[in-house]
Design a binder for these strands. Structure first.
Length: 181
DNA sequence: AAAGAGATGGTCT
DNA sequence: GACCATCTCTTTT
């Protein structure tokens, strides 16, 4: 399986997001196929980057292909991949994956949950794959990075489901959520 | 099946 | 002090 290169991520988040469908997230000894993503931009009222760079969102303004992890609701983490160019403030939120390998590790990190609920949400995904603030700023494109995104040759769906983003109160009309049917 | 509410803490105004 | 790019459990249809 091929590790995605930085050139893949160095484009607009709205271009990268649909192409991430069916790619593989590798982390914590497990592998999951990406089935739902959302795009965020700086010129986008729903984005953390909308009001400029802060301590929390600094990673989002950095290099493409780097993981932006943030903590929210007092208990959940969400994982994004930075896209575009340095200073842009763009990212793609990884919202859901389906288990491909290392499912026992996923179950161990999400005890008591049915297999279908192991990583079918952004907070659940981070819990299942053991992602937290320690991974913020991690370069997915580095040759030895412990977290990365791979391509096993399965193409993105020709006709993904496209809709409104979830859990936001502004910018709700932008159709920047993509998922597998 | 759908709707509601509580948990829980970092971040920014 | 208000607001969360959420999840889970409980209550109601």
């Amino acid at each position: 399986m091929r590790r995605l290169r930085r050139t893949f991520f160095a484009r607009a988040s709205t271009t990268v997001a649909p192409e991430l469908l069916n790619k593989l997230l590798v982390a914590g000894g497990s592998v999951g196929r990406i089935v739902e993503v959302e795009a965020y931009m700086a010129d986008d009222p729903a984005s953390h980057a909308f009001r400029g760079q802060t301590r929390r969102n600094a990673t989002m303004f950095g290099k493409a292909g780097v993981l932006y992890v943030y903590f929210t609701y007092g208990m959940h983490h969400c994982a994004n991949v930075v896209t575009g160019s340095i200073g842009d403030g763009q990212a793609v939120l990884l919202r859901a994956v389906t288990p491909v390998a290392g499912i026992d590790e996923l179950r161990a990190r999400r005890p008591g949950r049915p297999d279908r609920s192991l990583a079918d949400g952004p907070g659940k995904l981070c819990q299942a794959f053991g992602l937290d603030l320690r991974h913020d700023g991690l370069d997915l494109c580095a040759s030895e990075a412990p977290v990365w995104i791979g391509d096993d040759g399965v193409p993105p769906p020709a006709v993904p489901l496209i809709g409104q983003r979830v859990g936001i109160s502004v910018g709700v009309d932008l159709p920047w959520r993509w998922r597998i049917q």
